[in-house]
């Protein structure tokens, strides 16, 4: 049993958990968390694709892709969270 197999399945499980969470969660923040789980899961798969059994060095391209994916995801998260904050403030005004 090699690390790529173990963590590949881990990543897939994390993606599936995030996917189900994004579909069924009711809390707005929780859905953002769920999407972030999906992104980490996809990252696992790409990093596993880059792994070579030591002493071979890993393939650098998927590493670069995942770094790009991380920055893209934090951008998307920030926009979703800004929407949540704004919407919450407006709904609080409606309640008042």
């Amino acid at each position: 049993m090699t690390p790529d197999l173990i963590y590949g399945v881990t990543g897939i499980a994390v993606f599936a958990i995030g996917l189900v969470g994004a579909i069924v969660a009711q809390n707005r923040l929780r859905r953002v968390l769920a999407l972030k789980l999906c992104s980490v899961g996809a990252g696992f798969v790409l990093i596993v694709a880059a792994w070579r059994s030591p002493p071979d060095a890993p393939d650098p391209v998927p590493h670069a892709l995942v770094i790009t994916g991380i920055v893209v995801m934090v951008s998307a998260t920030a926009v979703a969270l800004a929407l949540i904050r704004r919407l919450h403030s407006l709904e609080a005004e409606d309640d008042a």
Partner: peptide
């Protein structure tokens, strides 16, 4: 563990 320290740092 998957020899991706840069990515780990970014994450």
């Amino acid at each position: 563990r998957l020899s991706a320290p840069d990515v780990a740092l970014a994450e």
